[in-house]
Design a protein around this nucleic acid. Structure first.
Ligand SMILES: [Mn+2]
Ligand SMILES: [Mn+2]
Ligand SMILES: [Zn+2]
Ligand SMILES: [Zn+2]
Lengths: 140, 140
DNA sequence: TGCCTTCTTTAGAACGGCTCTAATCTGTTG
DNA sequence: CAACAGATTAGAGCCGTTCTAAAGAAGGCA
């Protein structure tokens, strides 16, 4: 039983990323990847780990998040100055950002067309196209 | 002579925004608006003012930048965690972001089509659509 | 199994951008 | 010019994030 979903197994996921499956990384990987797509901040994830009785320092949470970004298993989303979100959805997609609550909602990549993009300056190449749609309570 | 461009005059610009034209605000407004479109950080602008022998505190630079944003004369662009850019171009447009140098380049709003955008969640309205195209040295 | 090496974790200090405080100063109005 | 409201300031404080260096854990190999 189990083992059918991609990355169903935190241990395998870490091994494949070349990261030792330590107690802390296993717990964090499970919190991140066991429940569908998530957009979490480092402090949120740290709070969840502590609540789940997994003692882990904030430094380790940051280390692990950055290592997972480096391994392509997580992506960093910037919508606000002074706080990063980490996105477990690494497919091509965009975001609604709810300014009041600070929540991010996925928009599938094929639900938005960004077309007619000018060529980037000579010698440079496009790394990523981020569309952030900022939304708020109706009728401002 | 002069007076033909919109906001050719810092004094008038501040008065129209309901801000007292103090020595500091006049100098900052001139640095911001006298040379075409700019994308500056608070520290950059502070450095320019000091270099121009206009003694002004960093707190005043932040106060002024936020007041100008509030007056719709400036817009805040978020591309990086931990640092805000202030954009003197308040027309509808988007950005290239050069990750290596931290520079922003304007893309006119009509040079990009963002179409097929899903409706925002019930009770919310779109405040702004930001497209950031992250670019880097060719062939990563 | 124990030993050794390397990688990882950690507490706490440090950092950087930004904001706040409360005292001083300046622009404006009459 | 006096009086007041609004603006500026130095410096402290805040908060998310990163760094440091010391202690701990994982894995390879006898
Ligand atoms: Mn980061
Ligand atoms: Mn701000
Ligand atoms: Zn997402
Ligand atoms: Zn711009």
């Amino acid at each position: 039983m189990s083992g059918s979903r991609p990355f169903a197994n935190a241990l395998e996921l870490l091994r494949d990323a070349g990261l030792r499956p330590t107690r802390q990384r296993l717990a964090l990987a499970r919190l991140l990847f066991d429940r569908g797509d998530r957009h979490v901040t480092a402090e949120q994830l740290h709070g969840e780990a502590i609540a789940a009785a997994v003692p882990v320092s904030l430094a380790t949470v940051y280390n692990t998040l950055h290592q997972l970004v480096g391994a392509g298993l997580l992506r960093e989303v910037v919508v606000n100055p002074g706080r990063s979100y980490f996105d477990t959805n690494v497919s091509d997609h965009h975001h609604f950002f709810l300014e009041e609550s600070g929540r991010l909602l996925d928009i599938p990549g094929d639900r938005i067309d960004v077309s007619n993009v000018p060529a980037p300056p000579a010698g440079t190449a496009i790394r990523r196209v981020d569309v952030v749609i900022r939304i708020g309570r109706e009728a401002d």
